[in-house]
Amino acid sequence: MDFTEVPVDQGRKSKKKNKKAPMKDLKMEEESSGVEKLEPGTTFPPTFSVSEIKNKQRRHQMFMKLKQEKRKQKMQLKKKRRKEREALGDKAPPKEVPKTIENQRVFDETTVDPEDEEIAFDEGTDEFSAYFNGLTNPKVLITTSDRPRGRVVKFCEQLATVIPNAHVYYRRGLALKRIIPQCIARDFTYLIVINQDRQTPNGLVLCHLPDGPTAHFKVSSVRLQKELKRRGKAPTEHSPEVILNNFSTRLGHTIGRLFAALFPQNPQFVGRQVATFHNQRDFIFFRFHRYIFKNEKKVGIQELGPRFTLKLRSLQKGTFDSKYGEFEWVLKRHEMDACRRKFQL
């Protein structure tokens, strides 16, 4: 048999060539895939899709470059419009209003018109007419669910400092059907029940006496006075001013009047205190402030607390009755929250 000698150097070279070969193949694949490094200032083709890139790292890099490119184009367009506006001066067109969920809201047929005769008649004959005609003064009873603990007790006490003529009583296992006749006999106009879950307020029942209605709210984002940063001093006993924002539908109009009847009609401006119920996307944000006059032109505000957020769950005719009560409105989450641009309040 014939044997041929193979030089050691050639074998080593061939191994090195084999190792370098995959690198060439990778470069060929990158060129064939059409993904190339973009130089600054280059634009992407209109049919370009980042999702077509299979390599995760390269896809992320291309996505960030695409995002930077869009940001640059947006800034250039903004500068161009600003220069045109400065050049035109007073003849410049009005600024475009940004699109939000609020101004793109779906029109509701039950939107209240203040000049409507039907609305005026309802206001004169509803359950709150005696209060708005000045025949009754608000007197509020605040109670809790059984065995209140922790933040629930403090929340009730601080709520009593916000609402004038409010009294806190512990429930002691009594049913609401037994509490309501006692409240009516003692001339209370409101019953507020704070429910709890894991020692935190999670629900609020607001019952107007003696004829209703009764509203049930979910409570969230509760912040007590000590939990607020840069808070002012404790609230005084002066009657606050009341601000109601964005209660535009018939249901929202009823809820707004329900909140308004909690406070006396004649606020004491000496106290400089304001209670605000702000409705935004069917979430009612409550804030309690004191305003301070710094000089003739500037005014500052201090938040006094507490603060919380309400979400209406149901509105019931008459006083609280869980079995035989007639409900005017009940939240059906999967049906009513299907469209993000349609609101109930």
Rank of each mutant, 00 (worst) to 15 (best):
G203F: 07
H208F: 15
R223P: 01
P164R: 05
D126R: 13
K91Q: 03
L204W: 09
C207L: 12
D211Q: 13
V152G: 01
E117G: 00
V152S: 06
T143V: 09
C156V: 06
E96V: 05
K95R: 07
V112Y: 15
S220Q: 03
D122P: 00
T189A: 11
R81M: 08
T110P: 13
C207A: 10
G173A: 09
S145K: 12
E102I: 02
N103Q: 04
D146C: 11
E117M: 05
E115Q: 13
P148F: 11
K177M: 08
C207T: 14
P98F: 01
Y131S: 02
Y131N: 04
P201T: 03
R223C: 05
A160W: 02
K99L: 07
R198Y: 06
P148M: 08
T144C: 14
P201L: 07
R198I: 01
A130K: 11
I192P: 10
P98I: 00
V193N: 12
T111P: 08
A166E: 02
E109P: 06
S220I: 01
E102S: 01
R149Y: 09
K78W: 01
L204G: 04
G150Y: 04
H208L: 10
I194Y: 05
N137H: 13
F132D: 04
G173Y: 10
A175W: 05
A92Y: 04
I163K: 05
Q76E: 12
V168L: 14
R147Q: 11
R198M: 04
A120L: 14
N165P: 06
V106S: 02
L174N: 11
V205R: 15
S129E: 10
K79F: 02
K154F: 06
E115V: 00
D146I: 01
A166L: 05
Y169S: 05
Y170S: 01
V97D: 04
F128R: 08
P181A: 13
K79I: 01
Q104I: 00
L176N: 10
K177H: 12
A166Y: 04
F155D: 00
A92H: 03
R198D: 09
P181G: 12
R105H: 02
L88M: 13
T214A: 12
E84S: 04
L174F: 12
D211R: 15
P93G: 03
D146F: 14
N195W: 03
R151H: 04
I194G: 11
V168H: 10
T125D: 11
K95M: 05
K79E: 05
K91V: 00
G134A: 03
G173Q: 09
F107M: 04
R172E: 11
D122R: 15
V205H: 09
V140L: 07
V219C: 04
R223S: 04
